[in-house]
Every structure is written in structure tokens, then in C-alpha cells.
Computed example of a mutant assay.
Amino acid sequence: MFRYEFPVDAMLQRYKYQHLLNMAQTFAQMIITDLPNANLPDLIIPMPLHPLRLKERGFNQSLEIARIVGKSLNIKVDTQACSRIKSSPPQASLPLKERVKNMQGAFTFNTQLDGLNIALIDDVMTTGASLNSLAKTVKKAGAINVECWVVARTLPR
């Protein structure tokens, strides 16, 4: 929806690192408003956090947004379909070239998703390495179509 630049970057950082969970409602509403009038997915999967990262942060920022989007659009949000099995440094802390390598083998699927259309939700997309890796995992689980819904992304200037 937005470029990852001021003021959106500052808003997302405060949401994520200062636990301003009430901002999830705003971000979710922005996603809902920005969706084209097309077919909605069968299922929403928020970007999973590794259990250690979840314990450290205290919440999954993508899940908080996904819950609101799912409830508003009457689409099931599945937090168990995929898991992050690789604990690694945050993507934001890595050089661009290392982000793809960091995501290799990061996710696994726990549920077959045969024939389903899936929307992945994340707060920020920079290189797309995390979402691409998760999308490949979801496809291996049988999904026929995968969309990525993000609040903001970096774009080349």
C-alpha cells in the first residue's frame, strides 16, 4: 500500500518495537480499503515468527493485523498452517544479499492447503525474501494461488 518511508516507516517501527498494538486496527483498515474488488482468498496466513522471536517481542505484529483483516472480511486466519522453524537474525539487520540465504529452510507447513487461495500478511516487505520463502512453502502445501498483502514496502528509487 505504501512506500516504506516517512511517516509510514516511523509508524510501523513504533507499532512493532514499542508495542503500540492499537495501530494494528489502522494498518488492517488500510489493507482492507486498498484491496481490489476481486475474489477474496480462502485463508489468511500471517507471517510466522520463530518461537524465540515471539517470546522476545511478545506479539506477532503480522498476526495482529491479520486478525482484524480476517474478521472484517470474514476470512479464516490460520496461525497453525505454517511455522517458522529457523531462528535467525532479523532481516532488517542483514545486508540485502544475505536476506535470501537467511530465509532458506526458514518455514515448514503443518497443514495441507490443497486447492486453496491464500493471502499472506506481513507488515513490511523489503527484498521480499521472507514472503517469497513463505509463499514457496505454502505452494508446496498445495495452495493454487498466493497473494502477499503488506502495509509497506521498500521500492527502488
Rank of each mutant, 00 (worst) to 15 (best):
M1V: 10
M1A: 06
F2H: 13
R3I: 10
E5A: 09
D9S: 14
D9L: 06
L12K: 02
Y15P: 05
K16A: 01
K16C: 03
Q18R: 15
L20V: 14
L21S: 12
A24N: 06
A24S: 14
Q25F: 15
T26R: 13
F27D: 00
F27N: 01
F27E: 00
Q29N: 15
M30H: 14
I31M: 11
I32V: 15
D34P: 09
P36Y: 10
N37E: 15
A38W: 13
A38H: 15
L40N: 05
L40A: 03
L43C: 07
I44H: 01
I44N: 00
P48V: 02
P48F: 11
L49G: 01
R53M: 06
R53D: 04
L54N: 06
K55H: 14
K55Q: 15
R57P: 12
R57C: 09
G58E: 08
Q61I: 05
S62M: 11
L63A: 06
L63S: 06
I65P: 08
R67V: 00
V69M: 02
K71Q: 14
S72A: 15
L73R: 08
L73P: 10
L73T: 02
N74G: 07
K76M: 11
D78I: 07
Q80L: 15
Q80K: 15
C82D: 00
R84E: 00
K86Q: 07
P89A: 08
L94H: 02
L94M: 04
L94W: 09
L96N: 10
K97W: 12
V100T: 08
K101H: 12
M103E: 08
M103L: 06
M103C: 14
M103T: 03
Q104L: 14
G105T: 04
G105A: 04
G105E: 06
A106H: 07
F107L: 05
F107T: 00
T108V: 15
F109T: 03
Q112L: 14
Q112H: 13
G115N: 13
G115Y: 10
G115P: 09
G115W: 07
N117A: 13
N117F: 13
A119G: 04
L120S: 00
L120T: 02
D122G: 12
D122R: 11
V124D: 01
M125K: 07
G128R: 05
A129L: 04
S130L: 05
S130P: 11
S133Y: 05
L134S: 00
K136G: 08
V138K: 00
K139A: 03
A141R: 02
I144M: 08
V146W: 09
E147C: 11
W149P: 00
W149Y: 07
V150T: 09
V150K: 02
A152H: 09
A152P: 13
L155M: 13
L155V: 14
